[in-house]
Design a protein around this nucleic acid. Sequence first.
DNA 1: CTGGGACATTTTGTATACAGAAGTCTGGAG
DNA 2: CTCCAGACTTCTGTATACAAAATGTCCCAG
Lengths: 228, 228
Amino acid sequence: MRASDIAYESLRDDILNWRIPPGTALSETELALRLGVSRTPLRAALARLALEGLVDTSRGRTGVVPDVSVESIAQQFEVREALELQAARLAARRRDPEVFADLAESFAHATETLASGGTDAYYAVVARFDNAMDDAVGNPAMRQALESVRVHLVRARRLAQDNPQRLVQAAAEHRLICEAVRDGDAELAASATAVHLRGSLTTITATLQQRAANETTPGPDRPTQEGA
Amino acid sequence: MRASDIAYESLRDDILNWRIPPGTALSETELALRLGVSRTPLRAALARLALEGLVDTSRGRTGVVPDVSVESIAQQFEVREALELQAARLAARRRDPEVFADLAESFAHATETLASGGTDAYYAVVARFDNAMDDAVGNPAMRQALESVRVHLVRARRLAQDNPQRLVQAAAEHRLICEAVRDGDAELAASATAVHLRGSLTTITATLQQRAANETTPGPDRPTQEGA
DNA sequence: CTGGGACATTTTGTATACAGAAGTCTGGAG
DNA sequence: CTCCAGACTTCTGTATACAAAATGTCCCAG
């Protein structure tokens, strides 16, 4: 694997999991030293992250990790809604019914999945769902557009992750989407997707506002070190 | 201006205007020599173009300019439809009425604009329209998503450019969109946008198929000698 | 004549060195 | 005490050199 890929994935993972908090200045020399690669591949990694929107290079020359605000999430959701609804419609027309029948079944057992495997096991099912939708749509451009917007929500989801109640509800919504796609009902699939997105946005917004209230709360993965 | 920006804009312009035809292998050393920059900034430029989809690095290590096929355009339009309809709805809710009243007026005089200033003058009005929509939506994420999909259609539009009849029709469609947005009618704005996109896609598809028929026809910027 | 393997050439990936620019810190003056 | 100016430090941007990998070609064997 190339050094630039290593740097890219490592940085991306760090940002997504809040190990590098928003506002952090990303110095090339420092990161290159830490990751054990030269500045050249590291620059490439930073450029990729910048184009993905995971690094903000707009103001100043040194890139910073952008903040996750209620406003930015709402904006992402406006884009996501447009794309996911269209994807749901197209998937309903082009799907393989068996695939979505299986997925509907998986979501029907989400409560047990959550109980035995935890949130990670549940998110694995969601990942299967996303892939199945992308495959059914069969449009590389749509897939890329969707992935670029999903990336931004990973960080927000990371914050709201400790909300199993919402996940049970989300599973029911996913199940309905799957059933609509399975039956080839494009409009129902779109409506069910709209319902799901609204629920997601509401939960994330609430989490963010709650987090803003007690503002010193650190991120999930970040070792609390502000004693020094 | 940075050397990487120069290389990026130069390459982008060359690709968009068919000076670098699809299928061309993009050798770093050769391009660096030709553009008078080192390989380092040129690599950055190629990376940017690759993430925009203007260079295909998926197969093989050396990047190639992707083809403009009927299929790829249709896929782009599926994404574009999702985004533009959403943008039209949001713009109708948040617009400044005067801006779109002005634009509607401009599109009403499109025939004269085309007669006096040619296609370039008309496309300038379209650019104003796109900017006004982006401003009205007020969503940076939406703007970026829209721009990334519009880029791909520039090359196709470049081929269909010599079709003034279609442009007159398109102006009427744009005018209706502007009026709907001006009046705050979100659903009409979305419907009018859908109508416009369908017309655009039909024209581009016809142009591409016609071009595929006489396959030796060169791109717009090459000197054409077929009986005018 | 065809297929396979080895070698050579070209190309990409990486590292390092250097230059220019920007931000900061310090010292002096008002 | 505050503000401004100049130098210094540190960062990014660029170029070049080197190594590794891939591809294409040529020759030899079957």
